[in-house]
Design a protein around this nucleic acid. Structure first.
Length: 461
RNA sequence: GGCGCGAUAGCAAAGCGGUUAUGCACCGGAUUGCAAAUCCGUUGAGCCCAGUUCGACUCUGGGUCGCGCCUCCA
């Protein structure tokens, strides 16, 4: 039985889908005005892992991950770049897709863009107005009346009266209450806008997710995920909007992944201490990055440093090394095997990927002992559930750092093979000095030679 | 000020009221022309103070420290 930590309940709960056998899941994706950083990588990988495990568990999954392609920052950045909003967002959507692909993230079933859902947002705002929860302020903005929605603050554990609105950000004087949030912003001359019953304008940040999720998944669905920083106010406001409009339960299970940190501080755009995915992938294989993310529990903080990435690389190398000389075929998982059972138990315990990875390493040790092809298949199959160890072992071990695809075929390979041949000849005539010289030369270039019974192989150190 | 999370060996990171987590690094041995990889073995842990218990890293209470949210953020 799968247990999920539900942010709403602040406890692990048995996962019971609304419709037996199928799951509907919505995850807040990217605002596309810049490159994805490690924090984004974590959301992408974590919910990809969740989605994979749900499917591996035999559930039929509908996974929606939205794209925010209209908001203040996008407008600002497009203006700075002197380009259209569409040009800006299209470019970064393409970059995001490249990053996701490199990280082994499977495409979601739906990737709705906010700008394509304005009619649905307007309908939702209209419904909120009819339900007495929305009002148009003097400045033309349509706001949500937070105090009229019972239960506001339940997800984030906040009491309305304790919220210090205005302490850190100036309160909009036109709002009926400082805590009220915007559903529809009145148009300004230099900004894009859409026609609406409340005049020309553009959507507030939160309304898009309420509109897209209900359109694609229905008014009531199973799982809603996102980064911890979205719990308040974004997700709290989504609940208010969706439940306020539809008058029914919105989401059963709320999942929030922990932050990525740098030197014990949250990685964020505003702090400027972020590393982009493509920046990291220039130096580390993307699979190392995926493994780095998955070897920590999704709710724990994840401290980023190159030392930790080096460590992850070494660990992943051990796994691939175990698979080096066994046939690269991935049979279906034999879930009755003891290792698979432990793996499954770990994953069913709120997606305990660190424990699941530990099983992988135990499997590797056993495989190193007996070189059983069946065991190798099992290792590949289980790791495959996490989206790991999907490549040819040799290709991974020989992949150049910058080769994001990990194809393993680069120009250096021929030269290396030639030197290996020279060294073999030297060894044959017992010229060990020359053999060691070649070994040293390659080692200095980051190439490790390994003499085996079947000849010499190489890998990158 | 309100609310929440965490503290595990050199580093990273899990489970568990009593039995080896796991990975990296380290040490000894096997193996190797030398290596690397691998195997075998050793070392090493649970912030502090109380309490519960036959027994606590694991439960309870208090403290200390760190982090986060209350503003845009994944």
């Amino acid at each position: 039985m799968l247990k999920i930590y539900n942010s709403l309940a602040r406890a692990k709960q048995d996962f019971v889908p609304i419709t037996p056998g199928s799951v509907r899941m919505y995850v807040c994706g990217m605002t596309v005005y810049d490159y994805c950083h490690l924090g984004h990588a974590r959301v992408l990988v974590v919910f990809d892992m969740v989605q994979r495990w749900l499917r591996a568990s035999g559930l039929q999954v509908t996974y929606v991950r939205n794209i925010t392609d209209i908001d203040d920052k996008i407008i600002k950045r497009a203006a700075e770049n002197k380009e259209s909003i569409a040009e800006l967002t299209e470019r970064f959507i393409a970059f995001m897709n490249e990053d996701a692909l490199a990280l082994g993230v499977e495409p979601p079933d739906h990737e709705p863009r906010a700008t394509a859902y304005v009619p649905q947002m307007l309908a939702l705002i209209g419904q909120l107005e009819r339900n007495g929860l929305a009002y148009q302020a003097a400045d033309g903005d349509v706001n949500f009346s937070v105090r009229k929605f019972a239960g506001y603050g339940r997800l984030s554990g906040k009491s309305i009266d304790d919220l210090r609105a205005g302490e850190r950000v100036e309160v909009d004087a036109a709002k009926g209450d400082p805590l009220d949030f915007v559903l529809w912003k009145h148009a300004r001359d230099d900004e894009p806008s859409w026609a609406s019953p409340w005049g020309e304008g553009r959507p507030g940040w939160h309304i898009e997710c309420s509109a897209m999720s209900s359109d694609l998944l229905g008014k009531h669905f199973d799982i809603h995920g996102g980064g911890q920083d979205l719990q308040f106010p974004h997700h709290e406001n989504e609940i208010a909007q969706s439940e306020g409009a539809h008058r029914c339960r919105f989401v059963n299970y709320w999942m929030h992944n922990g932050f990525v940190r740098v030197a014990d501080e949250k990685m964020s755009k505003s702090l400027g201490n972020f590393f982009t995915i493509r920046e990291i992938v220039r130096k580390y294989d993307p699979e190392v990055l995926r493994f780095f993310i998955l070897r920590a529990h999704y709710r724990s903080p994840l401290n980023y440093s190159e030392t930790h990435l080096d460590d992850a690389r070494q660990a992943l190398t051990r796994l691939y090394t175990a698979l080096k000389d066994v046939p690269a075929e991935t049979p279906p998982v034999d879930w009755t095997a003891p290792h698979a059972q432990r793996f499954s138990q770990a994953m069913n315990d709120d997606f305990n990927t660190p424990e699941a990875c530990a099983v992988l390493f135990e499997l590797a040790t056993e495989l190193n002992r007996n070189r059983s092809p069946a065991l190798a298949g099992q290792l590949r199959a289980l790791a495959g559930v996490l989206g790991l160890l999907t490549r040819d072992a040799q290709a991974f071990l020989q992949a150049a750092p910058s080769s994001a695809t990990g194809s393993g075929t680069d120009d250096a390979a021929e030269g290396i093979e030639a030197l290996i041949a020279d060294r073999a000849a030297a060894k044959k005539r017992r010229d060990y000095a020359e053999a060691d010289r070649i070994r040293g030369e390659l080692l200095a270039a980051g190439i490790v030679l390994e003499d085996g019974t079947a000849g010499t192989t190489w890998r990158r150190s």
